[in-house]
Nucleic acid binder design. Sequence first.
DNA 1: GGGCACGATCAGATTACCTTATCGACATGA
DNA 2: TCATGTCGATAAGGTAATCTGATCGTGCCC
Lengths: 293, 293
Amino acid sequence: MITLRQLRYLTAIAETRHFGKAAKLCHVTQPALSMQIQDLETSLGTQLVERRRGQVALTQSGTDIAEKAFAILAAVADLESHGRAGRAALAGPLRLGIIPSIAPYLLPRALPALHRRYPALTLRIRETQTKALVDELAHGDLDLIVAALPLDRPDFETLAAFEDRFLVARKPRGPDAAKRIDPAALESEHLLLLEEGHCLRDQALSVCGTLSPNLSKAFGASSLSTVMHLVANGYGITLLPEMAAETEGSDKVELVRFSEPEPVRTIGLAWRRSSARGADARALVDVLQEARG
Amino acid sequence: MITLRQLRYLTAIAETRHFGKAAKLCHVTQPALSMQIQDLETSLGTQLVERRRGQVALTQSGTDIAEKAFAILAAVADLESHGRAGRAALAGPLRLGIIPSIAPYLLPRALPALHRRYPALTLRIRETQTKALVDELAHGDLDLIVAALPLDRPDFETLAAFEDRFLVARKPRGPDAAKRIDPAALESEHLLLLEEGHCLRDQALSVCGTLSPNLSKAFGASSLSTVMHLVANGYGITLLPEMAAETEGSDKVELVRFSEPEPVRTIGLAWRRSSARGADARALVDVLQEARG
DNA sequence: GGGCACGATCAGATTACCTTATCGACATGA
DNA sequence: TCATGTCGATAAGGTAATCTGATCGTGCCC
């Protein structure tokens, strides 16, 4: 008979690839963990762990099972937190993930209001790229994430908060320059972008559509602030989310809107379907929308 | 600490609404089950079961938790069957659901081939309407279902098998009648349909689109065979899936194709994402396609 | 009010699980 | 080559979780 304990021990093995360390992680001794893993292998009729010299490895089955075990344990953990669902939204601990191209612009405005309206909320914030956020949310390391939608994860539920326009940031070109810009007009420009992995990079590339020739030259910076300094010094242009305009704008850079239909990205929240964070998400969306004003 | 045992006992309560019967279902004594439920309530910090005179009822929380518990237990059961995934596809027990508007036409052709090619397969077949199949699949009472796609269930994975054309079945109207029919031309006809709940009824209505006036008269029969007899006797027309044409056709009824684009429905398989039935599904699709050939 | 149905509680038995101690295989290095 | 260290498996015995069987208390029905 499979038990949650066995699944917990298996995931510890998956994380540490070491029986002793896994046992320590689970606050038990190594023989206890070894035996549970053996029981699990017997129940499943498959070898899950390859005991090799040096370090252990999961078999193909073991990897698959561990993956599912993570999901099951996350679902059970959500069950445990379900009691909280009966109480008020946005109270108690909440682990929130945010992507880097939103966090510096949204958080300074949203956090004060959030603390004011939900004093019982204990936020723990993590800022990293979408892919990592999604993984950590799925594994139960986060409760809620703020990212650009859609995420294409059927095990997540999502809620759109607002749309964020893309603006073109470039050196000022005098009053005779076009008031609105067509994406096709960017073909001849040198486009500056964030480094690989940032969803903002992919979104900007998608706005610029088929402009493959120049894209190989696309620069990779690690923060929007850096990119904007480069733009200010004439190294090229970039696409700036409107939300960042206030913070990143300067008199050395001109921000121009696209012609209709203006390209946007949808910013929203996501949480595990099995978690009881829907009420929290709806409450948070309200705060975010007000903060954006 | 929550255990799978507690979840199993809770689902038994949800099914029986009776501690004694639930205990029997779990092959334990009633005190054992009572205590586990109490432990679960303590862990969750919520009352799950209302002990009332006569019979017990689940609280709102209890209903929610039981729902999630079903899902978790199904995922664990899928884990247990994962061992089978390593072996050949379509071997061992498989609980297959099929909708009534496909079963009588597809099974007679598919089953012999299926048994010939997969002698190790032990099929248990259930025929009922889509909604029931979907519920039973989600609860883990079925392994795989054959239905019209899409199903709009993010926890299911699906695989399309083939498209099935709709034909118009009517009394013969002589050689001067149109060779192809436009859906709009059905407006003046009396449309005969299956009773409420059959997806074929909804699909046929959708094909006929905006023809609301006649639809309120839409007849409700319990089998396609009945409908076709009515058509043969001049009570109206119906939409017949091409798959059923061979069986249900007769010289008293004329089958006419629609004009392009011909309306079709997509028949396919669905299974729980968490189950390891993908290989089985792919193998089964091959057999179904050949059987239809 | 007696009998009954049903869930809660209690005491003792059973089972599952853990810990400590030890083994055996393998690698490393003097 | 042999001592040494690492790591997972195994063994023995103790502890905690869980079960069973008996009993209690409550509400219901006749």
